[in-house]
Design a protein around this nucleic acid. Sequence first.
RNA 1: GCGGGUGUAGCUCAGCUGGCUAGAGCAUUAGCCUUCCAAGCUAAGGGUCGCGGGUUCGAAUCCCGUCGCCCGCUCCA
Length: 474
Amino acid sequence: MFNSIDTIAAWAKATGFIYPSSEIYGKFAGVYDYGFYGTLLKKNIEQAWIKNVVQKRKDMVLIDSAIFMHPMTWKASGHIDCFDDPQIDCKKCKARHRADNLLEQYGVNADKMPIDEINGIIADLKEKGTVIKCPLCGSTDLTTAKRFSLMVKSNLGSPTDALSEENVVYLRAETCQGIYLNFKNILDSTRMKPPFGIAQVGKAFRNEIIARQFVFRTREFEQMEMQYFCHPDLVESQYAEWKEARINWYKEYGIAAEKLNFHKHEKLAHYASEAYDIQYKFSCLDGRFDEVEGLHARGDWDLSQHSKFSGAKLNYLDPKTNERYIPNVVETSAGLGRLSLMFIDDAHTTEQLDNGETREVLKLDYRLSPIKVAVFPLLKNKPELIAKAEEVYDILSDNFMSEFDDNGNIGKRYRRQDEIGTPFCVTVDFGTLGKGEDVDLSEQNTVTVRNRDTMQQERIAIERLVEYVQDFTK
RNA sequence: GCGGGUGUAGCUCAGCUGGCUAGAGCAUUAGCCUUCCAAGCUAAGGGUCGCGGGUUCGAAUCCCGUCGCCCGCUCCA
């Protein structure tokens, strides 16, 4: 639990989870780098998602499509025409407004309307005697509507740095287009048939006007997307099933039900016919519920559009009924950065201990913990302890992401692992060696395993360690 | 883009009206110590004071410019 986005960002940097990008050049807004623990956490979240969405199902496959796609992709998908926000600035008070929101107040639905049409309507209104005003200062001195495209451009393959309409290549604004483009390949090569789905994890890029709130909104971000292709008659039931399946995944990984909800979209994106968000109650965003995953019914919009623009037949002939149809799509799309933020925010706990001190613990589900087990020699100045601890580390690190630490004293090392959410700490002591004062010989070749949450220890034989940790973390 | 805020070590800050080699705590690293929960002792590393220009014998400090970052408007996985 963090009480602000700043405190979680500072924590993430100090602990090695997430750093601002390009810090030595003074940071680069809206972009973040994942450090050692952040990278591992992210990989584990991704793995947990793949397990839920792909591994445990017979009707799902996984792909990894390229970030660059044929420019026509974005023309077909509607992103070039619709994926921008028409802006109108007030010349007097300098406020910026969304043109469609502004026009709504004059009874005009300008949602997803091309820019020329919007300016046409404004001119028409003026002719009929209605001059639109700045809702803030009331001034009528407004600019014409201007586009602010959310698509990021690249000069890939262009001989010059000129980004003309002909040679521009876009970085993908959503990963799912790579799925649609491979729809036919999957049908042809994997024996999948509707209803089935294709999943993908990868980066997407959006030229957000303002990227803020740490990794909650970034210009470069990772999506975990699933597109489920089914007969139009099945959309409703599939949509309901996926809603259920996805929210249960959050609960399975330790998010309390009362911190989750569904939020229904009233305004829909250009591709969607129904849209719900799964929201999480972020304490670092002042306890506000905000989106971590979107579920959309996209109809046959994408496959139809790509059929139309490419000429490919993106439909399915049901061999039983002889019916040929364009499958409809149910999409789930989760933001990996947001999920990382959510899990950190949710797991971070400050505990009051009996001795009056406090302890910071990252109570992540063990499966998500970056480091599964840490190995310590009880004392740093006893070479036999160090040597034995290194032996134990070698055994564990062959199986798990592990850490070795002989710095400072044992308490400090426990706290350090608590802070990054390591479920188990293994300590090699004199009992392990079977020698020293007052040593119980029955403890030879056993170590203490200390649990992150209970702080309790138990003695485990070294040969049983791997099995022990595996049982808790798989 | 506009408005507001801000910029000295990894972090939190001190450095007042210009003046010793820019400091402290925490953190980091090394050594000593330590037989299980952030103890102690010793030492070390780390800063072109955001950047550029000006005023001055002298600028972290004053002036001008510029840039980055943060917050709001907008957007969204």
